[in-house]
Nucleic acid binder design. Structure first.
Lengths: 153, 153
DNA sequence: TTGCGTGCAAAGGTTTTGCATGGCA
DNA sequence: TGCCATGCAAAACCTTTGCACGCAA
C-alpha cells in the first residue's frame, strides 16, 4: 500500500502546499493547473495527474467522482491526524459539494460486517458516501413543492 | 420525473427484453452494443445511450458510476416486481478492480442510520465501497510473506 | 403528416501514455 | 551516475451532439 520511490521535487512540494491551502475544498486537475499558471509557475497536466494519483494512494488526498462527465475532484486530507483513533468516514453532498466528516461507531460496524460476511476489507479512507445533505434535501423539497414537474435539472 | 414522448419502437422493446435477461447484473453500453451485434441486429451506440438515459429517468434502470475511467454500469430493475429493494451496494477492489454488488439488508440499514442520525440521504447508486477483495487479500499476504517490500505492482 | 427515434460520424472532454530532457539522491 | 520526475504532444476512452433519414402514432 505504500509507495516506494518518491523524490522530493519542487513541483511535489508546491502542489502539496497549494492543496493544504484549499484543504476541505474540492479541486480539479484543471483548477490546479490554472492556479500554477497564474503564478507563472506552470505545471503540466500529466504531472498533476501523476502526483495526484500518488497522493491518493498515499492516503493524503481523496478522489471523488461526481459524475461521469465531470472532471474528478480531489481533496487534501493531510496525514489524518484528526482521524487517529476512530476511523473517519466521509459523506459528500452531490448537490452542494459539502464534505461531512463522521466519527460513528455504527458506521465502523460496516467494515466488520463486510469483512465477516462478504470477505471484503474496507478501506475507509477511500470510501465516500454520496448523497444529499439535509439542507439541500430541504431546498429540493421546497423546489419540488413549487414546480412538481421540474424538480430535475 | 416522468418522460413525455415515448414511441414504442422495436429497438426499445428489444433493449428492454435484453436487459430483463440480465436483470441483477451490470452491463455497460458497449456490452449492449456487442450483444446486438452478435445477434445480427446492430444497435447504434448513441441509441443505446439515449434509451438508457430515458430508462434511468423512468426508474426502470439504475446507473452506476464506479470510476472515472470505467464506463458507466447499468442494471435493470424493472417495475420493482422482485420483493427486495431495487438498489444494490457496490464494493470495488482497489487492487484487481473487480466489482462486487451486494443486496444486503444490513448494509441497507446504513442508509436509514445516516438519515436518522446524520440527516444525510444516502445515494447508493453513487456510493462505492473501496477496499480489497478476499482473493487479493490472500495474494497480498502471500507476497508480503515472500517479499515484504514489494507488495505493490 | 408530424415529430420522435435511429445511425453515422464527428466533436467534446478527461485522463493516460511515449519519449526526450532535467533534476534529485 | 542512476533513476525518477517533468513537459509536451498525441493517443485512448467514454459520452454527447448534429444531421438526414426512417418509422410510430
Amino acid at each position: 500500500m505504500n509507495i516506494k520511490s518518491q523524490y522530493k521535487t519542487k513541483h511535489r512540494e508546491e502542489l502539496i502546499a497549494y492543496l493544504e491551502t484549499v484543504a476541505g475544498q474540492h479541486v480539479t486537475v484543471s483548477d490546479v493547473c490554472a492556479y500554477f499558471q497564474t503564478l507563472g509557475k506552470p505545471m503540466g497536466t500529466a504531472t498533476v495527474y501523476r502526483q495526484m494519483e500518488r497522493l491518493v494512494s498515499e492516503g493524503m488526498v481523496n478522489k471523488y467522482i461526481i459524475d461521469a462527465n465531470s472532471p474528478a475532484c480531489f481533496e487534501y486530507i493531510g496525514s489524518q491526524e484528526h482521524c487517529c483513533e476512530p476511523v473517519c468516514f466521509h459523506c459528500k453532498c452531490e448537490r452542494c459539494g459539502v464534505l461531512i466528516h463522521l466519527h460513528c461507531d455504527e458506521l465502523e460496524g460496516i467494515a466488520a460486517h463486510l469483512q465477516e460476511h462478504h470477505r471484503f476489507t474496507l478501506n475507509p479512507m477511500r470510501t465516500v458516501f454520496y448523497g444529499i445533505c439535509d439542507r439541500c434535501a430541504a431546498e429540493e423539497a421546497a423546489e419540488a413543492g413549487k414546480q412538481p414537474d421540474e424538480a430535475q435539472k
